[in-house]
Amino acid sequence: MAVTLPHIEDSSRTHYIPPVGNYETFTDADHYAEKVKEWGLSAGKEQFWYKDKDHQRLVSIRGYIVYGETDDFNTVIIEFQDGNLSCIHPAYLKEMQSSNFGKAVISNSAAPSSEKPTVPVNVKEPEKKTNTKESKAPKTSKKSAEVKKDKSAKLVLPEEKVHFTAVVRQFALTWNHFNEENDEVVILDKVIIHQDEQIDVGLAWCAHSKTLKKFELAPGEIIEFDGKIVKKKLAKGKDVDEEFIISEPVQYKINNPSKLKKS
């Protein structure tokens, strides 16, 4: 009598790109669903297809890496059934879920890099030589120099989860380029981080998740909560009513607010 052996994935044909150093993990199911939806993937799924030219394998998403000057970009960390971890761009993983994936020849430029992705740096044009006798450096007053310094100063954000107070300013829509649709967000004003040295953030935004919708927030309400803040500029929504457009730049995002209370 023939014995059927369990199927073991052939991992020898997969090129792994393991993450270097630490990476972000999901705090709970809502955080996972929020990020997966942001990447244009199905938030209700726990496994996704990783496809190559001649084979495909099931993978799970274990976390992500944040990079770029404004922390706008992510690299997804996937885990194969044999326990190996690998890095992949979320748009590339989304493309792999299509039934047509693999029919076209994948160019080398589309393959993810083994190193941490970087944002291209604009190349400066060579400076033109000027006659030092004819050109003079503009005079800058001490007062204007101090103002310029203050504007260029950047907030030093805590890396761990911290306690916040804020005022609900409005609801807005932001364009998600992964799933090509608008996502609803909450704009918060007078955001303050409470720790040994209080930090006044000003404006910030967060996803209007299922958890937040349960609180039925309204503009003008004062709230307090725990969360993690990162520098991530809010993108404007596309083809939306004026009431859902934020009129000024919002540079900071609060991830997965929890333990929310209304004052």
Rank of each mutant, 00 (worst) to 15 (best):
S114T: 00
S114R: 11
E115P: 03
P117S: 04
T118L: 11
V119P: 04
P120M: 00
P120F: 13
V121K: 03
V121F: 02
N122A: 14
N122R: 12
V123W: 05
K124G: 08
K124L: 13
E125S: 08
E125T: 13
P126E: 13
P126S: 06
E127R: 11
K128M: 12
K129M: 08
K129R: 14
K129H: 12
K129L: 10
T130Y: 15
T130I: 15
T130C: 08
T130G: 09
T130E: 12
T130W: 12
T130N: 04
N131T: 11
N131Y: 15
E134L: 11
E134W: 15
E134H: 15
E134F: 14
S135T: 14
S135I: 15
S135F: 15
K136M: 07
K136E: 13
A137S: 07
P138E: 10
P138Q: 10
K139H: 07
K139E: 02
K139P: 00
K139T: 12
T140Y: 05
S141G: 11
K143S: 02
A145I: 03
A145R: 00
E146Q: 09
V147I: 06
K149T: 09
K149V: 04
K149S: 04
D150N: 05
D150F: 09
K151M: 13
K151F: 14
S152R: 14
A153T: 13
V156E: 15
L157C: 12
P158W: 09
E159S: 12
E159H: 12
E160Y: 09
E160T: 11
E160H: 15
E160I: 10
K161Y: 01
V162N: 10
V162T: 15
H163N: 13
H163T: 14
H163D: 08
T165M: 06
T165V: 06
T165W: 01
A166C: 01
A166T: 03
V167G: 04
R169K: 04
R169A: 01
Q170W: 06
Q170M: 00
A172R: 00
T174C: 01
T174A: 04
W175P: 01
N176I: 07
N176D: 08
H177Y: 15
F178W: 09
N179W: 06
N179L: 02
E180Q: 05
N182M: 10
N182P: 05
D183A: 13
E184H: 12
E184K: 07
I187Q: 01
D189T: 07
D189H: 05
K190F: 08
K190M: 05
K190V: 02
H194T: 10
H194S: 07
D196C: 02
D196A: 03
D196L: 09
E197P: 05
E197L: 10
I199H: 03
V201L: 01
A204E: 07
W205Y: 11
W205P: 05
W205G: 00
W205M: 02
C206H: 10
C206I: 04
S209V: 02
T211R: 00
K213N: 12
K213D: 07
K213W: 04
K214W: 14
K214V: 08
F215H: 09
E216H: 13
A218I: 06
A218F: 12
A218N: 13
P219C: 06
P219A: 10
P219R: 10
G220P: 07
G220Q: 05
I223K: 08
E224W: 03
E224F: 09
F225V: 08
D226K: 13
D226F: 02
D226M: 04
D226Y: 07
D226C: 10
G227R: 02
